[in-house]
Design a protein around this nucleic acid. Sequence first.
RNA 1: GCCCAGGUGGUGAAAUCGGUAGACACAAAGGACUUAAAAUCCUUUGGCCUUUGGCCGUACGGGUUCAAGUCCCGUCCUGGGCACCA
Length: 837
Amino acid sequence: MSKYPFSEIEPKWQKYWEEHKTFHTEEDPSIPKDKRRYVLDMFPYPSGAGLHVGHPEGYTATDIYSRYLRMRGYNVLHPMGFDSFGLPAENYAIKTGTHPWETTEKNIRNFRRQIKSLGFSYDWDREVSTCDPDYFHWTQWIFEKLYEKGLAYEAVTPINWCPSCKTGLANEEVKEGHCERCGEKVEKKNIRQWMLRITAYADKLLEGLDTLDWPESVKAMQRNWIGRSEGAAVFFQIDGMDEKLEVYTTRCDTLFGATYMVVAPEHPLVPALTTPEQKADVERYLEETKHKSDLERTDLAKDKTGVFSGSYAINPVNGKRIPIWIADYVLISYGTGAIMAVPAHDTRDWEFAKKFSLPIIEVLKGKVDVQQEAWTEDGEHVNSEWLDGLNKEDAIKKMLEFLEKNGYGHKAVNYKLRDWVFSRQRYWGEPIPLIHCPHCGTVLVPEEELPLRLPTVDKYEPSGTGESPLVNVPEWVNCKCPKCGGEAKRETNTMPQWAGSCWYYLRYIDPKNEKVFVDPEKEKYWMPVDLYVGGAEHAVLHLLYARFWHKVLYDLGLVSTPEPFQRLVNQGMITSFAYQKANKSLVPVDLVEEKDGKYIDKETGEELQQVIAKMSKSLKNVINPDDFIRNYGADSVRMYEMFMGPLRESKPWATNGFIGVYRFLDRIWRIATEKKVEETEMEASIDKLMHKTIKKVTEDTESLSFNTAISQMMVFVNELNKLEVIPKKALETLSLLLSPYTPHLAEELWEMLGHQPSIALEDWPGYDEAKTVDDTVEIVVQVNGKLRARLQMPQGAEKEEMLREAKADSKIQGWIEGKTIVKEIVVPNKLVNIVVK
RNA sequence: GCCCAGGUGGUGAAAUCGGUAGACACAAAGGACUUAAAAUCCUUUGGCCUUUGGCCGUACGGGUUCAAGUCCCGUCCUGGGCACCA
């Protein structure tokens, strides 16, 4: 069926670009700052499975945009690399004994081949790979800066432990109590960890969001994750003890309604609070909660449990004695690990109070009986002495004044954000460049000894005791202390995968520099990233960590911008069709057949419903672009992925739509090769359409609305196809407009039209605004808002004339005859609406 | 439960400073060309009716307006994120 020889054209031009270094980028100082753009893709983890169709979506979008900007005279930095440390290569090594380096190299070669086969205009001289010692040299160096600044610290804390991956996880890597990577239930485990003090940057990370051109949803997610809340710290005197219990509350105005207190089971005051009579009960409860997994503790049922400590606290506002309970619905990790409970106005406290028959006192006038359910909305204060009658806002203000004046408390801010657990007990990651010396304590590996490389090991198996496989390599672990020269041991933890991706965008700027991580002049030349495109799955993890590192580098004067990524666009996920039984279970795609537009389960004959689902191995609906590139060409793949729908929205991969863009490209090929192409005067209508097309494609490319730009090009091509003789100018313009989208075809056409390559270096075509408007326009005539007639009128006709013609129309007369005209609305060049009674 | 997106033909989707709903494409049906097929080209294609015309139609129910897919209020559904955060 094929006439369009993509399999010859595409390798030809890919070779040309590579040999001529068409997309090599230099820091040309003569190009002003506002004519430079940094267009970045989220670099891939080179998995063994290779590229899937989601990758080229974002990569094509940035490639079109980069090629467009170059044609508009911008100097564009558009690099690609590989995020190559990570667990899959290590797990494969455990299974097969193959060194992760080998697996990773092989996968990178495959990824590079696949990416190149799509004809992207990357400057390959700038490729980086995070597992390359020349790269992680500087990852380690940045870690040392963080350490020197006091932002890295060691702690033995309960961390999220994945028993399957045998490593600690950051909070961000735990999803619903399960390991994000393997799905195993996450346990709590106390081990020695390196932590990064990201909490010190909570406010800066929050405030910076306001300056960014990012999707609101991603900003909202980061705000949620940081979780800043303003409230008060309140001190409760413990009855009969010289101790105070500090709580955090956002609603200090409800203090008169506090009828009991709760501390987390891990709270340090628990032993002191426990009275002899309660000791047995408390110990039993502590034992119980210790064995609950995180998931069980936060499980759906959320049945409240707890035990009375035996002690009482004094409510500072009224001197009442209130009991102190121990319960695991209070988390040690948030606030002070202790709360004042106001059961009338908090659902959780209410449930607990009901279960243990604690008093419920209403302090906000609500619409419900607080003995029956909690009232959690605002209301007038009652039973609150000097707060009675006030609303929430005023009452909080007044209470804060009272607390501060009497030393009972003060304003306080809390965050949900936790410090970042930065160490992993694994082999395939950047070694943390620290040495433990019995005399000098923790000492940094001297800068001149970086990069600190990974030793060769025989077994990649983690020890499972919370230590990395590196502990089994004594010749690597044992070393001399750089300070005192005595016997010392290396840190055996490695960095998490996120480390390398925290700063890779800076290394692209100066990838081969052996002296510094990035030359400051070059950094100033390109930063910040003008457009960053990638999946929404990195909304908190990568994008928060990278911002954190960048802000630290900024504070150290090492980078020139407070934020790394000025504009972020999330490409929508490419989903796939899946087939659902009546009981909602999904059937793998290879067990489904299509019959007369219906989908039938091959095994049972049951009729199935077509639904949209994430691509997954188990449903066998993962799509690899290689087959499509082979069968239809890279240009078709690029164009199809852009034509499917808006870049930002998720959309299903429906292969039957693919043929449409292929036909489109084939049609262009036939126009160029089978029709006469001559330097003729263009017919006015074609000329107008050409100018309209240039305008639409320009605007839509600029705004990343590639799907509508493509449909406009289709309209233009359909019109050209009707002509016997093709004006050369029209075909040249089409080639230029196509060139960011289907660069191989465009280069070939450009050459056929007698031009020197490369079309990528040509100027983007301009348009004449006057030619983008039609001489006559269709005017819609409505009567009472309903469409009744259409008129052809000259562009820019006067309102009076439009109205006169509308009323003169025979159809309209039928509608307005014998009625009173109440109102007449005229929108120039658009419509007339006559309102009658 | 909370926070963010989104709901338009058989399908992917266009159209949002409120102004012709369904551009472009797929699929389907019919036709031309052909010994035949593929490819290509042309026509039709939201639903209904009494079909040179009319009525209905953008998840559902209200509202604002001369005019609502678009704005406002409420409801339902789908996707994503967070989740005992005091």
